[in-house]
């Protein structure tokens, strides 16, 4: 389990963690009472995920993990207007390269999912983007250079 480190989460991410914890606790309580856990329907917590989470060891370790995350969670806030031209956690960054547009949302490690365009601030691309402003050129340092220009930085309500 990861301990004593901060977990940066969007408001939505934080809500999801809370809901998952709540659902797992309910399943655990049902298990203790010897009942068959009811399938919980929630848009935020994947039902198929919960259906298979009946193993007590899993339940206990995941509950402990989620509690630790909540204890050390830091909510990502939308920065003040004057600082919204800088890439920080929670920003959706629009990049241009050779006339093509590419976008990433910069999130904390728990919410990262590059398949859905959400990248961790600790990944090389995330790190390369953090702190930069609109108009800056970012060089991705892989062996074959990619030069991105930051076109837009947006902070949506998270």
């Amino acid at each position: 389990m990861e301990e004593e480190r901060k977990f940066y989460l969007t408001k939505k991410g934080l809500e999801q963690i809370k809901k998952e914890l709540e659902s797992l606790k309910k399943i655990k309580a049902s298990k203790i009472k010897g009942e068959t856990p009811q399938l919980l329907h929630s848009e935020d917590v994947n039902p198929e995920y919960l259906t298979f989470r009946e193993d007590m060891n899993f339940l206990e370790s995941r509950i402990a993990e989620l509690e630790n995350i909540l204890k050390n969670a830091v909510l990502i806030k939308i920065p003040p207007k004057t600082k919204q031209n800088i890439v920080q956690l929670g920003a959706t960054v629009t990049l241009e390269e050779s006339g093509q547009i590419n976008e990433f949302m910069i999130v904390g490690t728990l919410e990262a999912n590059p398949n859905e365009g959400k990248i961790s601030a600790s990944s090389p691309i995330g790190k390369a983007l953090l702190g930069h402003k609109i108009g800056d050129e970012i060089i991705i340092t892989s062996p074959i250079r990619v030069v991105y220009k930051i076109k837009k930085i947006k902070y949506h309500s998270m």
Partner: peptide, 30 residues
């Protein structure tokens, strides 16, 4: 040419310190 797409896709996802060092080792090797 190695193609940047795989480097980029990798650099989007890797954040573990050990694996970041391993990426450097791969880059230095090739």
């Amino acid at each position: 040419p190695g193609g940047t797409s795989w480097w980029e896709l990798t650099e989007e996802i890797v954040e573990d310190p050990l694996l970041l060092d391993f990426l450097k080792v791969i880059q230095n090797k090739f």
